[in-house]
């Protein structure tokens, strides 16, 4: 019977094909990016705890085993992880579960029914998406930090980029985030602003964009590929550049050209733990957490930060 091994091998191959194919669909596109939890898993695994939480809770003291699902932009990864212990200590029995990804991806997930309690976006556009769908009540969304763009090169700087104008050098390998990603939008806005200035030419933006070899799907992928030396330059947030300070060099973008990213945060309207979600938002806006965020390179929205006019109270989105 020569047939059986062939049939068996084919079956095995089919089986392996099925196994090999599946992770592709949900594989995180930037494994080097330090995320607390994979993008897909927690949205499926976490709800039980939060739905079990009594809806009557009026105080921020939650029953043991309550989970608060925080969907936050990838650029908040390190800062929010650092914020978690203090919040959990102040709210015994509460576990924060973070889902870090591109804000645009998170907004889509939430609109498709992913169980989120808090959404922290890297731009207003994605918050507006959720306001439009009724997932977030406009008045509850507050800007909590700001971030600015910076051009990064590998530490060795193989292409010898020393100024922003050098980005237009022909033959560069430039890596940007995709248009769908907030930082990708901001980078395009920066290039457009520069093109309008006399010291840069009209064609600056187009010339720079001709050097782009890849539009990555999140800011941390841009950072990793530059840190690996695979690209000559990229545009990320200062906060991201700070996490790889030993591997990347920064070229500052002056305030006149820089696009200041605003980060809004809001509790989700259909959260099962509304009070707790609001408590987390309040905590992020409070001075203690703001200090931590500043330490990670963000510009505080409520407190003083170098070069930025402090605002007395959180700015309301819209």
């Amino acid at each position: 019977m020569r047939r059986s091994p062939v049939v068996f091998a084919l079956l095995l191959t089919l089986l392996l094909a099925a196994c090999g194919g599946a992770p592709a669909a949900q594989s995180p596109t930037s494994p080097p990016a330090p995320t607390v939890a994979p993008t897909v898993v927690p949205t499926v695994a976490a709800p039980t705890a939060s739905t079990d939480a009594p809806t009557t809770e009026a105080t921020t003291t939650a029953p043991a085993g309550t989970t608060l699902n925080v969907f936050a932009a990838a650029s908040l990864t390190d800062a929010f992880k650092a914020l978690a212990p203090a919040f959990e200590a102040a709210h015994p029995g509460v576990t924060l579960v973070f889902n870090f990804a591109g804000a645009q991806q998170l907004a889509t997930q939430i609109n498709e029914g992913a169980p989120a309690d808090v959404f922290a976006s890297a731009n207003r556009a994605q918050m507006d998406v959720l306001i439009a769908s009724g997932k977030v009540i406009s008045a509850t969304a507050h800007t909590f930090v700001r971030n600015r763009l910076v051009v990064i090169t590998p530490k060795a700087n193989p292409a010898g980029i020393t100024s922003l104008k050098d980005l237009a050098k022909p033959g560069l390998k430039l890596i940007l985030a995709a248009k769908a990603v907030p930082v990708g939008q901001y980078a395009l806005a920066f290039l457009a602003k520069a093109s309008a200035l006399p010291e840069y030419t009209d064609s600056f933006s187009a010339t720079v964009l001709a050097n782009v070899v890849s539009y990555e799907d999140n800011v941390r992928s841009v950072l990793t590929k530059i840190a690996l030396g695979e690209g000559d330059a990229g545009i990320v947030y200062t906060t991201d550049a700070a996490t790889q300070a030993d591997k990347v060099a920064e070229i500052a973008i002056p305030d006149t050209l820089n696009v200041i990213a605003t980060y809004p945060i809001a509790p989700l309207a259909d959260s099962k733990a509304t009070a707790l979600a609001q408590a987390f938002v309040d905590y992020v806006l409070a001075p203690e957490a703001q200090q931590v965020l500043v330490k990670y390179g963000f510009i505080s929205e409520t407190g003083a930060a170098p070069g930025i006019v402090p605002t007395a109270k959180p700015t309301e989105v819209k």
Binding site: G21, P23, A24, A25, S27, T29, S30, P31, I175, A178, V212, V213, S214, Y215, E216, D217, S221, K225
Partner: peptide, 15 residues
């Protein structure tokens, strides 16, 4: 045809 993960990391994303 379904390949995604290796492509986006190694080849990047350029239309």
């Amino acid at each position: 045809l379904g390949e995604f993960g290796a492509t986006i990391i190694f080849a990047g994303n350029f239309p």
